[in-house]
Amino acid sequence: MAEQTAQQTTGAPAETPASRGRYLYAVSRGLDLDALGGLLGLGDADVEAVEVDGLVGLVSSVDLDEYGEEGLRHNLERLDWLETAARGHDAVVQAAAAVAPTAPMRLATVFRDDDGVRRTLAEQHDRISAVLDRVEGHEEWSVKVLTRTHDEPPTTPASSGAEYLRRRQEARQARDDDQRDAHVAAEQVHDALVGLAAASRRLPPQDPRLTGHAGTMVHNVAYLVPRDLSDAFAAAVGDLTGDHREVLIDARGPWPPYSFAILEEP
């Protein structure tokens, strides 16, 4: 950082001043920036392209007060900031993925300048290309399976301690049964869908406080589905929903292949 400050005081107007960084949203292959139609990125900055040998890094300038290490540590704890950043990042990724094979970057991947982006894309060219090969022509679907909650209204108060304990035990038994049924259903759902997918990836179950569902999530899986099987996948989900009324099946998509944009170890 000290070096940067020194450079600035020499008066040469740097392309990117020390207080600005270059935020990399995604790397696409053979993307024409015009196809994004003047898309704006975080903070309404212009999205620009940094090209290296067929790979197109989509970048915009961000303020390092906001996206530097210090600022980020603070901002990540603020949900309103996090949502704005995530939505802004996603808008660029969605637009790119709609027109070209696209590997989304992790949130807040920030470089000092375009040369840094260029060097990294050159160094990682083969690994990024491998990711693009994997996701090209594919979309991501999210499928979750949750237990249905019994909405038995609390009836009359228990007439005795024994009655109270019996009810509690029954309730616990019902919950255990629900969980077991849900795991069985989830396995059947997965077996039916995985055949239509090029890859699948298990994600941690989400906290019920965040999902808006009272049930327990027993299955949270991302499927990488070839675009031409999208309709078949959606139809299969529809059939499964009809066949498995004992659980709640929550399927969303198609999305950019976020869960499958992971570099293999070199």
């Binding site: 960084g21 992790r106 920030v110 000092r112 990294t120 990682q124 944009a261 992971i262 570099l263």
Partner: peptide
């Protein structure tokens, strides 16, 4: 998830 780059990076 999403690609995590290492190298010439300020923040990752």
């Amino acid at each position: 998830t999403g690609v995590v780059l290492s190298g010439d990076i300020l923040i990752s």
